[in-house]
């Protein structure tokens, strides 16, 4: 394995932040979704039951997977954003960035390696969430997975990965501001702006809102307004963030 990727992979494997965030996403989305299904099944006139019934289009795979998709899109942005902020920002906060200068591996390559391991982390989190979600769904007795349900599984995976990609540009904030806290602040700002844009009805064209709306966060009508073009806006946003970050690291100074 490339020395830079091996280095970054080891650091991420040992990171309590990365481990905790991974578990929060992978366990949280299926657990919460299963909880909602259980509440809906119990029925009744309680506040929670009424709210859950309104959120779930049905109590089968479609409703359950839709809930997983909605929760995991939010979770992947938050978790992926925090881990990305840590991955890049900790070098400044911990003072370890000095050791990344004047070495045989270029800083551009190191930054690229950080993105490579973050993509691996994100893919494993999204994949594990969906797999565990399916396992929990089978345990809930939702029945065999039909073609509609498999389509729901694929949507959840794609939506979560798109949010993971959208978290990566936070690396530029963590690098340029030399710490993980500014990037966490930027993440909160993104979440707030996404909510505002969605409320005013422009969510389909806002890259950070589109995946969540697509999996049902705003209802069926909002979901229908999101197509491949809107979803794929995540790609150039991610690419711009990666380019800006690697360019920053290539020219960085220890001022």
């Amino acid at each position: 394995m490339d020395a830079a990727v091996a280095t970054e992979a080891l650091k991420l494997r040992r990171s309590p932040v990365a481990r905790t965030a991974w578990l929060a996403v992978v366990l949280g989305a299926p657990a919460l979704s299963a909880g909602f299904i259980a509440v809906a099944r119990a029925g009744g006139d309680g506040q929670l039951a009424v709210k859950v019934a309104a959120m779930l289009p049905d109590m089968g795979w479609i409703g359950y997977l839709g809930m997983i998709g909605q929760i995991s899109t939010v979770a992947m942005l938050l978790a992926g954003g925090i881990v990305t902020a840590w991955c890049f920002g900790r070098e400044f906060a911990d003072g370890t960035v000095v050791g990344l200068f004047a070495i045989a591996v270029s800083r551009r390559r190191l930054a690229a390696a950080k993105f490579a391991v973050m993509l691996g982390w994100s893919l494993s989190a999204c994949g594990a969430t969906v797999l565990l979600g399916v396992a929990v769904g089978l345990l809930l007795g939702l029945g065999p997975l039909g073609s509609d349900a498999l389509g729901g599984v694929a949507m959840d995976l794609v939506a979560a990965m798109l949010m993971a990609l959208l978290a990566l540009p936070l690396a530029w904030v963590a690098s340029a501001r030399r710490g993980y806290l500014p990037a966490v602040g930027a993440l909160l700002l993104v979440v707030i702006v996404t909510q505002l844009v969605t409320v005013v009805g422009a969510g389909a064209w806002f890259p950070y809102a589109a995946p969540g709306l697509w999996v049902g966060m705003g209802g069926a009508e909002s979901a229908a307004a999101v197509g491949p073009v809107q979803l794929l806006l995540a790609i150039p946003v991610c690419a711009a963030g990666i380019w800006a970050t690697t360019a920053w690291w290539a020219r960085a100074q220890l001022t």
Binding site: R14, S15, P16, D94, G95, T96, V98, G99, A102
Partner: peptide
């Protein structure tokens, strides 16, 4: 080189 903070990741 050894400048300012000595090289060493605390988790390793």
């Amino acid at each position: 080189h050894l400048i300012e903070t000595p090289f060493g990741y605390p988790e390793l």
